[in-house]
C-alpha cells in the first residue's frame, strides 16, 4: 500500500505506462529526507536580529547591558525587546543575533531550570553550569550544521565568585573581565578594556554603570542597528536585578556642521 495520497492514481511513470512495467521503487518518495539530501531547511542566516551586548566585571560582581531593539535587516522592527534574560537565581544571559533562536534558548533554559528545581536535591544552577550547558548546546548545534545564530554573554555571581563568559554559534567560548558581542566587539571592547583591565576589584557599581552607559552611547552614535533604549543587569551577592529600560542623553547638534559628505558638500 502506498500511504501517500499524492501518489495515488498516478502512473508509475510520468509518461503513461499502460502495462505497469515501470519499476515500483521509482515512485516519488515522500518519506523523511536523508540528512545530506538537498532542501532540508536549516538556519542559514539570522532574520530578526539583536545587536551588541556588553558586560564587565566590577568590585562586587558583574554588569551587563543590551539595547531593546530587534532589527529586521535594516528595519528597526521591534523596539521593546528584552535581550537580557535571568536564568535561576544567579545568572543573566544576554544575546545578540537571531531573536527567535534566543527565544528558543530561553525556552530550553526554562525547561532545564524546572527540571533542576523539581529534583529538590539542594543543588542550584549557577553561571558556571549555565555556561557549560550553553556551550555544549551551541557546539552540538553547529556540529549538526544547524546552528543557533547567536552570540551570548553569560554573567553571574555565586558562592562569592564573579563569572563572565562568551559563547557563540560556533561553540567558541572564552572568558575575560570585559566582553562585548557584535559591533560592540569592535567599538565598545577597546573602551571597556581601557576602563576595566587591571581595575576589576576597584570599580564601584556606580562607576561600572557609567562605563557601560558611556559605551552604549558610543554604540548608539556609531551602530546603525542600535537603539537609544536599553537595560542594564547587575549581578552581585545581592542577586540578580535587571533594570527597566532607560535612555541616554545624546547630542546631535554637531551633525549640521559636518561638511564633506552626505547632502552637504559645501
Amino acid at each position: 500500500m502506498d500511504h501517500f495520497p499524492t501518489n495515488w492514481g498516478r502512473p508509475r511513470n510520468d509518461a503513461f505506462d499502460a502495462y505497469a512495467t515501470h519499476p515500483i521503487h521509482q515512485r516519488p518518495y515522500n518519506g523523511p529526507k536523508d540528512t545530506f539530501a538537498d532542501g532540508v531547511q536549516r538556519t542559514q542566516q539570522p532574520i530578526v536580529t539583536g545587536t551588541s551586548v556588553l558586560a564587565i566585571k566590577y568590585k562586587d560582581g558583574v554588569m551587563m547591558a543590551a539595547d531593546n531593539l530587534a532589527s529586521y535587516g535594516s528595519l528597526a522592527r521591534f523596539k521593546d525587546v528584552q535581550r537580557l534574560h535571568q536564568v535561576g537565581n544567579y545568572t543573566v544571559i544576554g544575546a545578540g543575533g537571531d531573536m527567535s533562536d534566543f527565544q528558543y534558548i530561553q525556552y530550553i533554559l526554562e525547561e532545564l531550570s524546572v527540571e533542576e528545581i523539581s529534583a529538590q536535591d539542594g543543588h542550584e544552577l549557577g553561571p558556571v553550569e549555565i555556561h557549560e550547558y550553553m556551550s555544549q548546546v551551541m557546539y552540538a548545534r553547529r556540529s549538526k550544521m544547524n546552528p543557533l545564530w547567536n552570540s551570548l554573554l553569560i554573567a553571574g555571581f555565586k558562592d562569592g565568585k564573579r563569572f563572565l563568559s562568551f559563547v557563540d554559534l560556533l561553540g567558541t567560548t572564552y572568558t575575560a573581565s570585559t566582553l562585548a558581542t557584535g559591533y560592540g566587539a569592535y567599538i565598545a571592547q577597546p573602551l571597556l578594556r581601557k576602563a576595566v583591565e587591571g581595575r576589576e576589584d576597584i570599580i564601584t557599581e556606580e562607576e561600572a554603570r557609567k562605563i557601560l552607559e558611556d559605551s552604549m552611547r558610543v554604540l548608539f552614535y556609531r551602530d546603525a542597528r542600535s537603539l537609544n533604549k536599553f537595560q542594564i543587569a547587575t549581578i552581585s551577592s545581592a542577586g540578580v536585578s535587571i533594570s527597566d529600560s532607560m535612555q541616554l542623553d545624546t547630542t546631535w547638534s554637531f551633525a549640521e556642521d559636518i561638511r564633506g559628505y552626505g547632502a552637504q558638500t559645501q
Binding site: 525556552y107 526554562e110 525547561e111 524546572v114
Partner: peptide, 17 residues
C-alpha cells in the same frame, strides 16, 4: 505519578509557552 505530572508540565510549556 510525579514523573508523569512533570512531563505534562513540560508538554504544556512546549505547546503553549
Amino acid at each position: 505519578i510525579s514523573q508523569l505530572a512533570r512531563e505534562e508540565g513540560s508538554k504544556i510549556r512546549k505547546m503553549w509557552r
